[in-house]
Design a protein around this nucleic acid. Structure first.
Lengths: 136, 136
DNA sequence: TAAGTGTATTAATTACCATGGTACACTTAA
DNA sequence: TTAAGTGTACCATGGTAATTAATACACTTA
């Protein structure tokens, strides 16, 4: 379900948070679905349970999951979360643009790169979540 | 010439590397210009010479400066560097696009954000290199 | 009751960052 | 030649973050 990248400079718990955020936002993990237990996931990934615990705490703090003591952690997806993730990504884009400008790259050049990425430029997405609201 | 931000979570040497890369890429520091000596910059920034040394080593490793023992460090700007920097930034854009797609953000939405950033969308850049003067 | 769960705490380890200090080799100018 | 300024290479120290490790406790469920 989750694969760690030890070449990644970021802490393990942060990688775990990211992966689950994506799985939850994409609907792979449905609302109220049970998360792997702290101990079982620790065994599966061959890392310490404390690291999983830290990731789960972060996911709970940011509203992606909720906890029932003695029972486990569960997905608490709601539409607001998607907006949070979107804003985070837009923020990163803003910062990248600033850096690009300092390297002499214009917005136009970034735009060109943006749309040449995978050939596709028109209709995308809509796949993945399919059903549900989508909206926002 | 350089101002450190102690609220910044990044290491000091990394901040120094970044600032000089920008100064060099923007042409504020011209090719073959002498860099501040390790000791003098350390005094100016009130940090340890070893930290400056580390930053300079990184700048030399990445080709931004060259060293002459006993004489000092000098700017070794060439067009190739700018290209490398551009590619690095474009690469980051590519990865950001992938993450955005996973969050359900289309290229169009990214494009919109890209050009709404600071109102400006047309002529930019070309400013910055203007005169030079600056030069230590 | 036993097993599985989250949670909390403490200690130890490792890596990285930064400092402080010393020493050496080189270049330049007096 | 000498002195000053330069880069460079060490080493030891302290601080912090990430992670591991080992326990312990409280809860839920079968």
């Amino acid at each position: 379900m989750i694969i760690l990248d030890y070449r990644d400079a970021r802490p393990l718990y942060e990688q775990i948070v990211d992966k689950f955020q994506i799985l939850i936002l994409k609907g792979v993990l449905e609302p109220n679905a049970k998360m792997p237990s702290v101990r079982s996931l620790a065994v599966e990934l061959s890392i310490n349970p404390n690291t999983i615990q830290r990731a789960y705490s972060e996911l709970e703090r940011t509203g992606f999951i909720y906890t029932v003591k003695g029972r486990g952690n569960f997905v608490s997806y709601d539409e607001g979360l998607k907006q949070v993730r979107r804003e985070e990504i837009f923020g990163r884009l803003d910062r990248l643009v600033l850096e690009a400008r300092e390297a002499g790259i214009t917005r136009e050049e970034l735009g060109e790169r943006l749309f040449s990425g995978s050939g596709v430029s028109g209709q995308e997405e809509a796949a993945g979540q399919a059903q549900k609201g989508e909206g926002e």
